[in-house]
């Protein structure tokens, strides 16, 4: 029995069973090439399937956050004078800005709380996107088809992970730009001077990356190791899976929130490293433990 190797001599094969065309087609490609090709295909399909929803969902969330802040400030009695003072003090501490007026306070509140809300969104969107990707695929028999194509199971897993990560990050970026960009623009229009500190930028930009990765990884691993759970469309099981997948990401978010003295950038870097290592371990685990019957109808 021959074993496929990257250095396989194609001309040898021609004389056995393949035509010239087949031999060209079968030029061995590396695992990384295969993963990137499959990721590209999954991203292409994700973009076509989701269409404008990829843009509309995060923008709707941005609008929701904006309205939430405005309603909080404009409805009398929702915020006590002490709370208003607290927002002003936080704005001073975060951005060195002296905020005045309801609109200014609302935007400052959005800027302060935005990164947490956006990271929360990244956790749940990441879990949902990844779970939908593998769950829908398993339910329609697409995983069987993918496993019949020229990819190993761990390559399929990593490609799913990369594709869902990129899609999650795209949605997070739209939401972050929509929310924080709008808040910053309004503050600038109100001529309220503010500066963004490094800690804030780390919190807003770096923290969501590992959070999205962890949520994607959790949902995908659970989805491929326990696909029956993702195929149950009763609602409660789906929500539980999403919660389980998003739980580590939420824990990280809570840690950063209750310990503001910690270096958010460093935590994000460590968490990203843990996420990448976790991805590799998961891929190896799946290679060893994955049974095709998990995803095949019998």
């Amino acid at each position: 029995m021959k074993t496929w190797r990257a250095e396989v001599n194609v001309s040898e094969l021609e004389h056995e069973v393949f035509s010239d065309e087949d031999a060209d087609l079968l030029e061995a490609s590396s695992g990384l090439d295969r993963v990137l090709q499959l990721t590209g295909a999954l991203l292409w399909r994700g973009r076509r399937e989701q269409g404008v929803r990829l843009l509309v969902i995060p923008l709707a969330f941005a609008l929701f956050f904006l309205l939430l802040c405005l309603v909080t400030l404009y409805f009398p009695g929702l915020l006590t004078p002490l709370s208003r003072f607290a927002i002003q003090a936080q704005a001073q501490a975060y951005f060195g800005a002296t905020v005045h007026g309801n609109a200014g306070l609302a935007m400052a509140l959005l800027l302060i709380q935005g990164p947490y809300l956006i990271a929360l969104f990244a956790a749940f969107m990441g879990a949902t996107l990844a779970q939908n990707l593998v769950g829908t695929e398993a339910a329609r028999g697409g995983l069987e088809l993918l496993l019949s194509s020229a990819y190993r199971v761990q390559e399929v897993f990593v490609a799913f992970l990369l594709a869902s990560f990129v899609l999650t990050i795209c949605q997070w970026a739209i939401l972050a730009l929509g929310t924080l960009g709008a808040a910053a623009t309004v503050l600038a229009l109100l001529r309220i001077a503010f500066t963004l500190q490094a800690r804030y930028i780390a919190l807003a930009v770096a923290v969501p990356l590992p959070i999205a990765l962890w949520a994607n990884l959790g949902a995908l691993f659970l989805g491929m190791a326990f696909p029956r759970l993702t195929q149950i469309r009763t609602g409660s099981t789906t929500n539980l899976m999403q919660l389980l997948a998003a739980l580590p990401a939420l824990a990280l978010l809570i840690l950063i929130n209750i310990r503001p003295d910690l270096n958010a950038g460093l935590i994000a870097a460590i968490a990203l490293g843990v996420g990448l290592a976790g991805s590799l371990v998961s891929a190896v685990l799946l290679r060893v433990r994955f049974r095709p019957e998990f995803v095949l109808e019998t």
Binding site: M1, K2, T3, W4, E16, V17, F18, D22, L25, L26, A28, S29, R45, R48, E49, R140, G141, G142, E144, L145, S148, S149, A150, Y151, R152, E297
Partner: peptide
């Protein structure tokens, strides 16, 4: 063995195999 290779080990040979599963398994939204 398919075309001299074990398809579950040598995944590249699967590029020369076409498969129609029991269900069409199409992406409904596409």
């Amino acid at each position: 063995s398919v075309l001299g290779y074990e398809p579950h080990r040598d995944s590249e040979v699967k590029r020369l195999i076409g498969y129609l599963p029991h269900r069409p398994s199409l992406s409904a939204a596409l």
